[in-house]
Design a protein around this nucleic acid. Structure first.
Lengths: 167, 167
DNA sequence: CCTTCAAGTTGTACACTGCAACCATAAGAC
DNA sequence: GTCTTATGGTTGCAGTGTACAACTTGAAGG
């Protein structure tokens, strides 16, 4: 702490809330917003084969070692139609495959193919490198604290159900 | 800058198990990715009148106290056509106005209207509330550290020019 | 003038999203 | 057994954000 300046430059936004936490919260808000916007703008150029969404879906598939489209939708807060199309595209690209569930013929269990696993690893690696470059110079303690803060924030954000605002 | 070590075994990307096995950088990467994805999904429902992009553009206009469309494009890493359409929509909505530059008739200096200022403040306020709810329970020290980390990260990310990956 | 460059606009195309309507299978209810 | 309801998925439709390329208009220099 301390080091953080409290030059709440973000004009407008003048309200009468708790005067204390205000500045830091506003900075967090502003920076997360900036990040979200930048992320969106570049999400499509993650990889010639893989968008940001496809990437996260593939990642989920790898971690869960196969799951249903409905699970993906639930875990990512997406509409099932969106997932359906994403899955279709990924299958078309040969990155995943659908296996019919023996017990429930409505269900298709999704699995990564070898190609999917390979591309996922490739993109993960490339992203990892990019992140490491950005985070070069950070102390291990800072990295861990930052990671912990993000986990904490995301947990809270994910818990927030609807909210016609934010994120 | 220091390509640094790549502790994690590149490909394979086999995580999932113990959280300890994952480096802080990987956690940051994963959580920021999750955030970006969620942000994208909700970006359109920020406000009935204002999308996330419109919001950030309006915010920039307020801070800069009027600027050109080209500046907006540059500062947000957007194509000028994208900004052109956004600006057109914002003008149509009566939130901004264009003023011809005396010296250079190609230029339109963009300014917030009163309505624009009002809506910007309203959305900022509503977002602020949402953020405060999410960040309720955080100590002031944690908030300030988190804010500082985000600033630091974003500065590095913004500095990264192209990068066919990440964010 | 004529070229070259910069600011914006427009046409076209694509990705991600949600909602609503729909199909197929499951699971109960009777 | 049917009939009804619920669940997993797909498809039609619409809206938003984005980029790229081609074009218009004005500015700057020869």
């Amino acid at each position: 702490m301390t080091t953080t300046d409290r030059s709440a430059g973000t004009t407008g936004a003048k309200r009468a809330g708790s005067p204390t936490a205000q500045t830091a919260v506003e900075t967090i808000q502003r920076e997360l917003t900036a990040f979200a916007r930048r992320a969106r703008a570049t999400a499509g150029r993650l990889h010639p084969q893989l968008s940001l969404v496809s990437y996260t879906l593939l990642g989920h598939l790898e971690q869960s070692n196969g799951c249903r489209a409905t699970d993906l939708a639930a875990d990512h807060g997406l509409d099932k139609s969106t997932v359906s199309r994403q899955v279709a595209a990924l299958e078309r690209a040969g990155l995943i495959e659908r296996r019919l569930d023996r017990d429930d013929h409505r269900v298709q269990v999704l699995h990564l193919t070898e190609a999917g696993t390979a591309i996922l690893a490739e993109v993960t690696e490339s992203r990892h490198t990019a992140f490491q470059e950005r985070l070069a110079g950070w102390s291990e303690a800072d990295l861990e604290r930052f990671a912990a803060y993000l986990l904490r924030y995301n947990a809270a954000a994910a818990a927030t159900p609807i909210v016609p605002a934010t994120d």
